[in-house]
Amino acid sequence: MTTHQTHHSVTIIMIEDDEGHALLIEKNIRRAGISNEIVHLSNGHDALEFIFNAPQGPLHNGPALILLDLNLPDMSGIDILTKIKSEEHLRRTPVVVLTTTDDKHEIERCYDLGCNVYITKPVNYENFAAAIRQLGLFLSVIQVPDAGL
């Protein structure tokens, strides 16, 4: 039952410390017509715990898509990205880096580490909403590999 379910329903793991951003992201994902489950984690430690150890986490259960903020209070999102991409079973889990940084070096670094999409959080709300909607489109189109198999 569980295996069958996870095969088609992708969990969105949102690692974001700013409650406001989290709310805005969620609202816009919903507005874009995406009804996938969203798990919100507000710090790096909890995020790693969930991804690697939680029974319903992506390592032990079902496909996921990770929305990752680079500026976290307890660690850099880069570290989380590195850990995810170096784990055999998580390597192909799509990671969308969502941050205010539009620093070229940082963007390059994230792509080098295997990030799938890098979205700069624009302050302009319309652009931001559009980016999230595109992300929704991306989520609906993307073939999420089955992490378990």
Binding site: D18, G20, H21, L24, N71, T100, K121, P122, V123, N124, Y125, F128
Partner: peptide, 10 residues
Amino acid sequence: RSPLVNVMGF
């Protein structure tokens, strides 16, 4: 920029 995203968003 981070709080500004919120101000603009909300």
